[in-house]
Computed example of a mutant assay.
Amino acid sequence: MYGVRPAPPARPAPLLAQVLRKLPAPRLTGLGAGLFALVAMVLIGAVARLLFDGSAVVYGVLFLPVCALTALWVRDADLVTAPIGVPIAFAAGIVPIAGGEGGFGGQVMAVVTALAVHAGWLYGGTLVAGVITSVRKVRQMSRRKRRTRAAAGAPAGAPPAGRR
């Protein structure tokens, strides 16, 4: 009895960790991730037009989390599609807030002008998606390298065979 301590009670995880664990973590294909971003941005564009009088700032600020979610939810095999799909979604979603009058030509000119004027949001969101997918790819490559070393029986810190 003496000298044996009871185990300390387990502490609950921090609140932020509990909330993050409850968030969905789907794995979308490249097409699914592009469709998610496209539908989300068209809806955000429509809401910005209706509720915020077509505010491009609201649209741009909401574009950033859509880019992050797209990059986080795309599956590992399709990582390259996230930074490609989000600019297309941005362009499609900006149509409702672009304005434009005078038929099809006026609408096209308004969309082109809106894309040029708000290119900072476009570049920023694409950068967010690119950084997240790059980090995920590097982590995937390091996991793969550790698995191949473990399968070969080499110690974790040892250099690969042939590079000594």
Score class of each variant (00 low, 15 high):
G124Y: 03
G54I: 02
A151D: 13
G45A: 04
G105D: 14
A37R: 01
R163C: 03
I97P: 12
A110L: 08
A71N: 00
G125H: 04
I44A: 07
L16N: 03
Q18M: 11
Q140H: 11
F90E: 02
G30I: 03
L79I: 05
G32Q: 13
P83C: 07
I94M: 13
P9K: 04
K137I: 04
P87D: 09
R143S: 14
L64C: 01
S134P: 02
I94C: 07
A71C: 10
G102W: 06
D78K: 04
F36P: 13
L23R: 10
T29E: 11
F90I: 01
V58I: 15
L16G: 01
W121R: 00
A158L: 03
G130N: 12
A71Q: 07
D76R: 09
V135Q: 05
F63V: 03
A119S: 15
V58D: 04
G157T: 10
G54Y: 05
G162T: 07
P12N: 10
T29F: 04
A25R: 12
P159M: 03
R5K: 14
Q18D: 12
A152P: 09
R11W: 05
S134L: 10
L64R: 03
L64Q: 03
Y2H: 14
V19P: 00
I44Y: 03
A13S: 08
F52M: 10
G105N: 06
P9G: 05
T70Q: 10
V112H: 05
I44S: 02
G106C: 04
L115F: 03
M141K: 14
R21V: 10
P9S: 00
K22Q: 15
A17Q: 09
G125E: 02
I88T: 09
P159D: 05
K137Y: 11
G130E: 03
R139Y: 11
R27Y: 04
A158C: 07
Y2S: 14
P14H: 07
V57P: 00
L64I: 11
I94T: 02
